[in-house]
Design a protein around this nucleic acid. Structure first.
Lengths: 340, 340
DNA sequence: CTGTTAGCGCGTTCAA
DNA sequence: TTGAACGCGCTAACAG
């Protein structure tokens, strides 16, 4: 019922293999026949069957994207749609396709990834997270299956290709900004401690504080597990301290939204009473009031580069592991100002 | 290099076809051999090859999801990640996989969808948009390829399965809420006029106004093409009118964010000076201040149901076209209050 | 430059 | 209850 190379062959009076060669644009086929075959393909409405092609070939020309296990929570962070966009755009340019994980629990995702690998669904995989001691990562590594991590791997840093920002530097710079603005009491609010981003950014904060001879005590560090409630808890904790902070370094714009809203509820005004800076430069961070001063980690670029690195790797298995650092910038808006 | 049924067959001393039958759990295979085969599969680490399977069988057990053409813009709306989540969750339960469109322009997407269909990448397709006179929709229909639309189709309503809310009713109810609060000057801000959602919700607004004997003049209707700038323009327009509105019905939470931020810039306080209600109940709408009074369209359910309807259709091509309406609710928060 | 043959891994007859 | 043989649509030798 579907048009196959055989049909095209018959219609053109050539053999199927010739048609196949035309598809591959094999230089050893005369321009003449190429034209004829192509015409027939068009008029018959021929389209290659991927499954047949994948079966014989070694490439599926599709890559799998694995979302973090708490997909429900994660997808709510504009970071993911945005990085997906970046991946998509590169992948599309390269004529590749995109296979998305659908599982929610770690187990589900692991099984899915296994299928992707063993079932030859995809040529390679992008991990949109980096967890300590990740089963999936080990599996991929054991199988020597091409993969790329967005973020910093916990192990085997030298043999895994990953795409990341210099989060320590970024954390330092953004904290320094607050310091330059005259703030001395600066607290850090991070997401899950399990994540490298969180701790890297915190390290940056720490070293900036240290360098400026400022205190960064333990009760000035708060880790919010959940974006929404995290904002409330952080504010409750920090602003019931004897000396509450006047500046806040927050590891994720989304958490900032929560904090902002709590701050307002508590009657604090941003940036007049407290200044706030964060990370990611998500779409909404310029819409919200006050617009966020935040480090732009170039999410889209992160996506493009991870896709690029992965595809290179699937094409050339010998491609060495690389660490790809995406330079960040700071975008100054209205959430941070001179200390009063 | 990969374990195939042949290997399993050899290891068990049966024929490949027997192994195949075991995989399909064919009842005509003795429990004995089933056990043996399964054991061998496990110990050898057998995993079926999808491509081979798809090639022979008629089902790929994967469904394609087509994002709107302005994917860049669209993905920014939390609506999409959220509906993807819904689709994923159902699809995963059914052991299906998810193929995502990567194109950005209409042409790119059309070609991609064509490949999906002709190349037998997927069993069916979910369209995450509904545009008038959509080429892709016509194509799918001509090919009699299973597809489902999220939203209301412009044509062939009776032969296309779609999943939607009763947006007219929702628009009416939410407008009535504002009216009950004492508002009489109520404006409508919608997204692209091309979209049915926009006009349906506007119709609802209109009929509520009419029923209450209130005016809904043309200059009280504003259509914002782009989420961000749209907010600014809408506010500029509406609040430079001789009699500016005190109530706003906005067709999308994301637009509301923009409007909110402009309103603040203009010195209007919400809900004291102007009340605002909108649609979707996106994650952030309860985080932002003021928290939005908005109609919850059950995005996740929209996703689940569209996946469900599609899979049913791919399994049974004779499945009749259905219109699946997802009931909405209104969640009352802080963006609307009694008129002062 | 092109045709023939074989085989990718699997499901499905048809026999036994 | 099981095996043998065929074919899905395509690519990749090997001939010529």
């Amino acid at each position: 019922m579907n048009v196959t190379i055989k049909d095209v062959a018959k219609a053109t009076g050539v053999s199927p293999s010739t048609v196949s060669r035309v598809i591959a644009d094999n230089p050893r086929i005369s321009i003449e026949t190429k034209k004829r075959v192509r015409k027939a393909m068009k008029s018959l409405g021929y389209h290659p069957n991927v499954n047949a092609r994948n079966l014989v070939g070694k490439s599926t020309k599709t890559i799998g994207v694995i979302m973090p296990s708490s997909a429900d929570k994660a997808l709510q962070n504009p970071f993911f749609p945005e990085i997906l966009r970046g991946i998509s755009s590169y992948i599309h340019d390269m004529q590749y396709s995109l296979f998305l994980s659908t599982g929610e629990t770690e187990d589900e995702i692991f099984e899915e990834a296994q299928r992707m690998v063993y079932g030859s669904y995809v040529d390679g995989v992008i991990l949109l997270y980096s967890r300590a001691n990740d089963r999936l990562m080990h599996f991929l590594r054991d199988q020597e299956f091409p993969f790329v991590i967005v973020g910093k791997p916990y192990e085997y840093m030298n043999e895994i290709t990953y795409v990341d920002n210099d989060n320590v530097a970024a954390g330092k710079e953004i904290t320094e900004h607050l310091i330059q603005l005259g703030h001395e009491k600066i607290a850090y609010i991070g997401g899950s401690k399990e994540l490298f981003v969180t701790s890297d950014r915190e390290s940056g904060y720490e070293s900036a504080m240290l360098a400026a001879d400022l205190d960064a005590p333990a009760n000035y560090r708060f880790h919010a597990e959940f974006l929404k409630s995290g904002g409330r808890e952080a504010v409750e904790h920090l602003f019931s301290l004897d000396t509450p902070p006047t500046g806040l370094v927050i590891s994720d714009d989304l958490i900032s939204f929560g904090v902002l809203s709590m701050l307002e509820e508590f009657g604090f005004s941003v940036p007049d009473d407290v200044s706030l800076v964060s990370f990611n430069n998500v779409y909404l961070s310029e819409i919200i009031r006050p617009a966020l001063t935040t480090v732009d980690v170039k999410i889209h670029t992160l996506g493009v580069q991870s896709a690029k690195a992965l595809i290179e790797k699937t094409i050339n298995k010998a491609e060495p592991a690389k660490r790809i650092m995406i330079p960040h910038t700071i975008v100054f808006r209205d959430s941070a100002s001179e200390r009063n």
